[in-house]
Amino acid sequence: MGILHGLRALAAAAVMVLAVSGTVQAACSDSRVDLRGDWGSARFRVELALTPEDQARGLMFRESMARMAGMLFVYDRTQQLGFWMRNTLIPLDMIFVDETGTVVKVHAEAQPRDETVILSEVPARAVLELNGGMAAVLGIEAGDQLRSPAMPQDGSVWPCD
Score class of each variant (00 low, 15 high):
M1G: 10
G2N: 13
I3T: 12
L4D: 15
G6R: 13
G6Y: 06
L7R: 08
R8V: 13
L10F: 05
L10Q: 11
A14D: 10
V15E: 06
L18C: 11
A19Y: 02
S21G: 13
T23I: 07
T23M: 03
Q25M: 01
A27Q: 14
S31K: 12
L35F: 01
R36S: 05
D38S: 14
W39M: 08
G40L: 02
G40T: 01
S41I: 00
A42R: 00
R45H: 09
E47I: 04
E47L: 06
L48E: 11
L48Y: 07
D54C: 01
Q55R: 15
Q55Y: 05
R57H: 11
M60H: 05
R62F: 09
M65S: 09
M65P: 03
R67H: 08
M68Q: 08
G70I: 04
F73C: 04
F73I: 11
Y75D: 06
D76R: 13
Q79P: 03
Q79A: 11
G82F: 05
G82D: 14
F83Q: 07
W84L: 04
M85S: 07
M85A: 06
M94L: 15
I95E: 03
E99Y: 11
E99T: 12
G101R: 00
T102R: 15
V103L: 02
V103M: 04
V104M: 01
V106H: 03
H107R: 13
H107P: 02
A108R: 15
A110H: 07
A110T: 11
P112V: 10
P112G: 11
E115R: 12
I118D: 04
L119A: 08
S120N: 13
S120K: 12
E121T: 12
E121Y: 05
R125W: 03
R125A: 03
V127Q: 06
L128A: 05
L128N: 03
L128P: 01
N131D: 07
G133K: 04
G133C: 08
M134R: 04
A135Y: 02
V137K: 01
I140S: 10
I140C: 10
E141N: 10
E141S: 11
D144W: 02
D144G: 08
Q145P: 03
R147I: 07
P149W: 03
A150S: 10
A150N: 04
P152N: 13
D154N: 13
S156M: 14
C160V: 02
D161H: 01
